[in-house]
Design a protein around this nucleic acid. Structure first.
Lengths: 213, 213
DNA sequence: ACCTGAACACCGTTCAAGT
DNA sequence: ACCTGAACACCGTTCAAGT
């Protein structure tokens, strides 16, 4: 272990701790232990635990931005939006309870905003006007966050599918049970399915606007 | 105050406490204080704080189910799905951090499942086949959860829109700033907007399947 | 059956003191 | 400049003891 801790090393260790122990395992003492110091030492580098959580979220958003920037220029806005959706889902999935933990966070890094600017430019360049691009990215973001939150909460719960676990009740609500089975099926495929529906909806709106241009 | 506490009164008080103080204000001691007892008394009625949180989520889901059941029979699946989306958003909005707190919860009440069965029947009756109904309700649910999480996290943060607060950076990322302004605008209207896009996407899929029937 | 008092092992955070 | 030891006011939870 290199001597001396830093803001960066604290955030890095906190992300590792999150993945290994879950959010409730990210305590000042555990974090300090992993870094070879005592808990109060952290407070020389950060003002509070909340600041650490904010930095963790910013770091995740930074990685999203980098991965997006490395993406090849999409053939059209539809491919670009799909790539965007897949990247942010993948980054959230990288961390335990990632969507729940990082979605609502306040990002404080100008670098992330500059990266956002980059692909907003791409989309408007590939035929989407600004109002549509803004709607589209926020809608797709909401979809990803909602989807991954459910995805990760199922993953972290044994006792989830009560429907399947209680045959007497399951028999009473056959449609819900059948729908629930549909839900357990491959998450990647379901995600692509939902994404396609949303992109089709956006396309319909874009097409409707085109003649008026 | 009626003498003696109960599971129900604990959950009711916990929901009030959540709205007044936020999730971190829902502590065993505060909860007990509100009920006129000491903290250990709670543990005669519930096994753990997690059980209280689960019950709170179940209660919210129960209210959603009741409100949905009271809804008039929709003219078609599209109106039915829109009504569904509006109801669950409204119930989440009723509680501070409602979406974040209750979305991933494990519902343990058969009553809620029976209510779900009811409107799944309605939708399949009004022209949506089961696979489409399952996709539709899960997609719309993901949208609502993702949307309201962002909606409520903006509401609970002063220092959110960094974009607007730092003119130097804002000037550097004009598209992001413009999109951000679009985001601050009326949430209800944005929600209806996104919902309409999603329903249009679902309609396209349903229409495509019809000829094949 | 239902509740209290005291206690246990934890939290995040502060602060004087050390180097 | 950076870290520790000791402490503070909190947590959730347990348990013997009271009624």
């Amino acid at each position: 272990m290199a001597k001396g801790i830093s803001r960066q090393r604290i955030v890095q260790a906190a992300l590792e701790l999150l993945d290994e122990e879950g959010l409730e395992g990210v305590t000042a003492r555990a974090l300090a232990g992993r870094l070879g110091v005592r808990a109060p030492a952290l407070y020389w580098h950060v003002a509070s635990k909340q600041e650490i959580l904010d930095e963790m979220a910013t770091e995740v958003r930074r990685r999203m931005a980098f991965t997006l920037a490395a993406q090849p220029e999409p053939a059209g806005w539809r491919e670009g939006l799909a790539a965007y959706a897949r990247v942010i889902r993948a980054e959230y999935l990288l961390h335990r309870d990632g969507a729940r933990t990082f979605s609502g966070a306040r990002v404080t890094d100008p670098e992330v905003l500059r990266a956002q600017q980059l692909w907003m430019e791409r989309w408007t360049r590939s035929g989407l006007e600004l109002a549509h691009a803004a709607t589209a990215v926020q809608l797709v973001t909401a979809l990803v966050v909602g989807f991954v939150i459910e995805e990760q909460s199922i993953a972290s719960t044994d006792r989830y599918l009560l429907t399947a676990s209680d045959p007497a009740i399951a028999a009473e609500v056959p449609l819900v049970t059948a729908a629930g089975q549909h839900l357990v099926s491959d998450a990647d495929q379901r995600f692509e399915d939902y994404l396609d529906v949303v992109l089709t909806g956006i396309a319909a709106r874009v097409d409707a606007a085109l003649p008026a241009d």
